[in-house]
Design a protein around this nucleic acid. Sequence first.
DNA 1: TAGATATACATCGGCTCCGAGGTTTAAAAA
DNA 2: TTTTTAAACCTCGGAGCCGATGTATATCTA
Lengths: 184, 184
Amino acid sequence: MAILGFLRDFPLHGYDLKNRVASLAGHVRPIADGTLYPTIKKLEDAQCLTRRTAPGSVAAPRHMLEITQTGTDQLRRWLRDPEPGFITDDNKWYVLLAFLHHLENPREQALVLSRRREFLDQPAQLFFDAAGAPIPPELLESPFRKGLMQIHRSTNLTEIDWLDRQIAELNQRAGYAVRQRGGD
Amino acid sequence: MAILGFLRDFPLHGYDLKNRVASLAGHVRPIADGTLYPTIKKLEDAQCLTRRTAPGSVAAPRHMLEITQTGTDQLRRWLRDPEPGFITDDNKWYVLLAFLHHLENPREQALVLSRRREFLDQPAQLFFDAAGAPIPPELLESPFRKGLMQIHRSTNLTEIDWLDRQIAELNQRAGYAVRQRGGD
DNA sequence: TAGATATACATCGGCTCCGAGGTTTAAAAA
DNA sequence: TTTTTAAACCTCGGAGCCGATGTATATCTA
């Protein structure tokens, strides 16, 4: 998804892609050569991208990669209907968010944000005692577990706040677009 | 790490472990049977845990798992000197945090927190233009990328704040312990 | 009493990804 | 001039994990 997402902005060669994916770091660990190049080949075989050999600006020749219509469609499908992990796994979610603007319909964008919003709404019960009963944060002995839950709650609230504002804005824009087209 | 970490609190059987790991969800995706049971066997072969067959409380007999001294040592090594991914990958970091109390020395605990603190200090440069120059958040066209960076900064500050307070407290406690032993 | 459900454990094929190694090309350093 | 460094690409073996599938047992439901 990150490969096609970056290529959707402008053509890039593999080495450049690698650095861009790596610098989403903190969210995504740097991608290894052994992952990147086979994946590029796979996307090429699936006609999601084309490559043109160009002279390297500094050294060895580059393979400039360009996304195709098929690739754009694939990217949009991934964004529109993301696998569960892309909603529940923070790392994956942030990747999705980084490219969600490529899904041009605001209503569809809002729908994806809503899925995340719904996920964040679930109360986090992280720790249980020997009998299986949940332990409330204030009864946790470990200050690290206490901090973990504090941070979790706080960051969740931050994101929920942003999500709600964003969803409202997107829906408003979608509604406005509908009214402009003269009807529902 | 999660398996040994949970077992360090009290003995558990595989099925129970599975649920406990799964309910760290949001941070960790539920662990699959095909992952859990081979891992348990691996830990048993490495003498990190022992199993006793006990009658199941509801149905089939259980294998009650108990951590050994070897297992405790292994867990402490993992916690004391975590692989880079456990510092930089949020999911893994939260797992580590959930069991850091098993590393009993406050100075060692503070050291681990400091590694995370140092990582969070790095300024996040997530997006670059076609020429390779970093794009400042306010110039990003995508509201999602803007939100991504906002959330990232905000949650980082929250965690940094907690880390600083926690590190200070741990170092104070370590210093107090040293003074009590009558030394340096 | 038959089937469905939940507990509890286990295996196996397949997929993804990584890390180590290797190649080519140009520029910089020795 | 030779070596080193950095850019740029590629491959292969192995590790880790998942999903499907299967087994046994006790309880709940039809």
